[in-house]
Design a protein around this nucleic acid. Structure first.
Lengths: 188, 188
DNA sequence: TGTTAATGACTGACTGGACAGACAACGAAG
DNA sequence: CTTCGTTGTCTGTCCAGTCAGTCATTAACA
């Protein structure tokens, strides 16, 4: 058998792309990404058909990682509010300790390069979190609001909270709670 | 005296850029923008030094327009909540009826092309609205939170609300109120 | 009022550089 | 010797910004 197409190299490219995109934006040259990954320019195109394809896969990878991080250590027996606070902590902690991944994600989200398929797949990775939200708002003032709106508010609040935590890491914990309480007031 | 450098043409370019950016993203070729504006490629660079300069001026123009629209028809005698609801209605209405301007604004916001000066100037145009927010949160649960965080939450909530109104214009009025109440719950 | 000269905003073909992706050559494994 | 992942050079395309020239407009003068 010839040398297998290595998953390590694939990951190296995705990691390099994350870093490089943060520094140079989405117009980052593929050659730069390849170099950062320690891989030849041409090799990049053996792993990803096009630059757009690379962006789509990277987006999905990051989104999936974020979603899995958020649902770690859940105690199904606990009250809904406690469970969700755990998710919130996981989420914001992941984002605060992976600023590059988060920035790259933000860039990719607005890139206009993502296919509807990618968006759909990404949405599915958030299904567990969205399910909790559904139950939280069920008896509150947002019970009649479209679910998409509630999810959008959650994402936006999380984003703002994470920004604050990153700006002022000393009080990260306090800010985390501040954002959570604000969201809870809004939707529960 | 020769023909003056026309402000009409400047506006035409900015308008064209708004439309063209929505359709082609920030990588829209300047030649395309110029053509859309009915102006020669080179003329664009007599009005704007560089593409980046064009983007900065466009951002500021749109932001200013939005902020002025929001503070129309205010009744200083009215209760704070009524006043702010008026602002909210103006704001969302403007955004809902200027979808292209809003989209362009969103793209420009995350472009990484905006100078700190532009950001500062844009921030100033929102001063009146931020001032109202300041008073609203003064006696509420967010009284100790950083003002920047509160502003970010307001912007995010407005964005989500406007999205919802655009998606389902039939119930725009209801959605407008829904978003306002959600924000009010969160910060007042 | 008609003619001419000066002006500078405007034009669009052009340039230089950058970049996505192709491809021919290479070398490691069988 | 064949197969196939990998390499890095190469090419065709695209685009921001330039610049030599155009031409509508105006002021000066007869």
């Amino acid at each position: 058998m010839p040398r297998p197409r290595s998953d390590e190299k694939r990951s190296a490219i995705l990691d390099a792309a994350t870093r490089f995109i943060v520094r140079h934006g989405l117009s980052a040259p593929t050659a730069g990404i390849a170099k950062e990954a320690g891989v030849a320019n041409g090799s990049l195109f053996t792993y990803f058909e096009t630059k757009t394809d690379l962006f789509n896969q990277l987006y999905l990878e990051l989104k999936t990682e974020m979603a899995s991080a958020a649902v770690k250590n859940l105690r199904p027996a606990a009250a809904l509010r406690e469970q969700y606070f755990q998710v919130w902590q996981n989420w914001t902690k992941w984002a605060a300790s992976n600023p590059e991944k988060r920035r790259a994600l933000a860039q990719l989200s607005v890139s206009g390069e993502l296919s509807p398929e990618t968006r759909t797949a990404a949405h599915k990775t958030m299904a567990a979190i969205a399910g909790m939200l559904e139950r939280i708002r069920a008896n509150g003032p947002m019970s009649k609001a479209p679910m998409g709106f509630v999810v959008a508010l959650m994402n936006a609040t999380a984003d703002a909270t994470i920004d604050l935590m990153s700006q002022d890491p000393t009080h990260a914990k306090k800010h985390c709670k501040l954002g959570f309480d604000a969201l809870w007031r809004m939707i529960s």
